[in-house]
């Protein structure tokens, strides 16, 4: 396990979610679940982040924002789509203003379905993302 896996910092973005999943994400940061045990920190800033946690089905207003935030995160980075809306658009999939999932805008590495997701599922998703993060870092090192 490299340091990438031991210190994954999150950036959380709500791309037109109903806030259900967001509350679960924040709940996972509470003392009960204490994600800092795994070195996870909720940063508010793409420059510091490794894992991009996105909720919601992405609409016209925020798809640019989503893309910009993604661009501003330095490599290696992993995107986790949290909740069914982020994964596929959910019940809003066919709305006129909804893109239908995060992967319509940026590449997604881990999908965590649920409406809303449970903290355990979320943590599981992030742990998966950490695995992907390590792979990406190994690939980056190899390319150097």
């Amino acid at each position: 396990m490299t340091s990438a896996a031991k210190s994954p910092w999150l950036l959380h973005y709500n791309a037109s979610s109903c806030n259900g999943c967001d509350i679960e994400i924040l709940a996972a940061l509470t003392p009960l679940y204490d994600v800092e045990r795994f070195g996870i920190i909720n940063t508010g800033n793409p420059a510091h982040a490794d894992i991009f946690v996105v909720t919601g089905g992405v609409n016209e207003q925020n798809k640019e924002v989503l893309k910009n935030l993604y661009d501003q995160i330095p490599e290696p980075k992993v995107v986790v789509a949290v909740g069914i809306c982020a994964s596929s658009g959910g019940v809003f999939r066919d709305c006129y203003n909804v893109s239908g999932g995060v992967d319509t805008i940026i590449p997604v590495d881990v999908y965590v379905p649920g409406c809303s997701v449970r903290p355990e599922a979320l943590i599981e998703g992030v742990v998966k993302a950490i695995g992907v993060l390590e792979e990406k870092r190994a690939k980056m090192e190899a390319e150097k």
Binding site: S3, P31, D34, R37
Partner: peptide
Amino acid sequence: MQSRRGPPLLQPFYDISKLWHKEKV
């Protein structure tokens, strides 16, 4: 003090090591 367990003792070093391997942005 906040009734959590907290990170491992060497967490700051892990953080630095990770940051050192990130892309230059």
